[in-house]
């Protein structure tokens, strides 16, 4: 098992675990935690895809710019994941704010008590 496949397997497992938690729990806070776990899994998978075995991080301090093409890993997924982490944080903050409003509204965090949109 290489590092890449370990990271990929971990990431996929985290996505499944997070979705399972978000879909089976009735408590809103636990659902939010499930979503953040799935989010972390997606980020791990994305970073792992950019890895090329035997190469270094895309920072040219010890690598001469001329040989960068042979020695660095793919920087694009890393830039993408940086964006994804920030947006994930924003989404989590919004979910928590709405959870707080729901709690203030009906004094409960159990999702099965909110049936207004159910048909």
């Amino acid at each position: 098992m290489s590092m890449t496949s370990i990271a990929l397997a971990t990431g996929f497992a985290l996505i499944l675990m997070g979705l399972y938690g978000a879909l089976t729990h009735r408590d809103v806070i636990r659902m939010i935690i499930g979503f953040t776990i799935a989010d972390a899994g997606v980020n791990i998978v994305l970073v792992a895809i950019g890895v090329i075995t035997g190469r270094e991080a895309p920072i040219l301090d010890t690598i001469a710019p001329a040989e960068a093409a042979q020695r660095i890993i793919d920087p694009v997924p890393q830039a993408l994941v940086l964006t994804a982490i920030v947006i994930g944080l924003g989404v989590t903050a919004l979910m928590l704010a709405y959870a707080y409003r729901l709690f203030r509204f009906r004094r409960s965090l159990d999702i099965s008590e909110y049936r207004d949109l159910k048909w």
């Binding site: 895309p58 920072i59 301090d61 710019p65 920087p75 940086l82």
Partner: peptide, 12 residues
């Protein structure tokens, strides 16, 4: 091209 075009060490 990062080093020549932007002068940044950190490609990301």
């Amino acid at each position: 091209n990062t080093a020549a075009e932007t002068g940044a060490q950190n490609v990301v």
